[in-house]
């Protein structure tokens, strides 16, 4: 039986100057799924997201989203299909206010002329207020985003994805650099998003991953080492060898 996957990557390969960052990956993602990708440094996790979002072009292989190939599209075209990304380091517009950041993220026409003649509608204002509520930044709506704390910046970036109403959210280390309390809040946020949205989360923090209780894909040296539930992955001897053997170090350096 052929299943309708939301995102399919097949035979994906990308090398940089001879170094194979992604090596013949086949990846299938269901609609509404929450997937976690783990792997040691240099496993190719971020490169994989780069390939999906059009930041890098693969050497070979295809990526299809809802059955349409997206391999040759530009970043903004892929975004407009409903794929949003949060970067590893928070990337928000530091000189814009929190409100403006969300405004720029809002779903809607993105052409030059429509932006010139754009007037904020009340429904847009309401949507922004909603998102501000979800990410808990209502009070900081009118200060420059550069003044936010690290965790707040991460949330703002997630908020921009929410404003976008992206169907597929790619989150690169969403809990990095957060306090325990913030991490927990982030975890809850992700869990509420799953179902309505489809998520791919890259993380190092094992407690956080366990909490998400999602299907886990392990990347190692550009290949998929194994895939399955957290327990299944944890018990896989190959994973223990290449990755969980270094678990403690990963714990000590959650930001690496």
């Amino acid at each position: 039986m052929k299943r309708e996957f939301l995102l399919v990557a097949e035979g994906l390969t990308k090398s940089f100057d001879g170094f194979k960052a992604i090596d013949n990956i086949n990846f299938y993602l269901d609609r509404g799924e929450l997937r976690t990708i783990i792997g040691p440094n240099g496993a190719g996790k971020s490169t994989f997201l780069d390939l999906i979002t059009g930041r890098t072009r693969p050497d070979s292989g295809t990526i299809t989203y809802r059955g349409n190939p997206i391999t040759r599209l530009r970043e903004y075209e892929i975004y407009r299909l409903g794929i949003g990304r949060k970067f590893q380091t928070p990337s928000i517009y530091a000189h814009h206010t929190v409100f403006e950041n969300l405004l720029l993220g809002l779903k809607g026409p993105r052409g030059v002329f429509s932006s010139i003649f754009h007037r904020i509608s009340s429904s847009e204002k309401n949507r922004i207020a909603e998102v501000l509520e979800i990410i808990g930044l209502t009070e900081k709506a009118h200060i420059p985003a550069g003044l936010l704390s690290h965790g707040q910046k991460q949330w703002l970036e997630i908020g921009m994805l929410l404003a976008q109403e992206a169907e597929l959210l790619l989150l690169d280390e969403p809990a990095a650099g957060m306090s325990d309390e913030e991490t927990e809040k982030t975890g809850n946020l992700l869990l509420t998003l799953a179902g309505g949205h489809t998520l791919i989360v890259i993380e190092h923090d094992m407690t956080f991953i366990r909490r998400l209780a999602s299907r886990v894909t392990v990347l190692h040296q550009g290949r998929i080492l194994c895939e399955g539930s957290f327990e299944h992955v944890q018990n896989d001897p190959r994973v223990q060898e290449v990755y969980l053997g270094r678990k403690h170090r990963a714990h000590n350096q959650p930001n690496s």
């Binding site: 940089f16 170094f19 960052a21 792997g39 240099g42 496993a43 971020s46 490169t47 994989f48």
Partner: peptide
């Protein structure tokens, strides 16, 4: 010049 650090994840 592409250094290895650019595509590290």
């Amino acid at each position: 010049i592409r250094s290895r650090s650019l595509d590290e994840g």
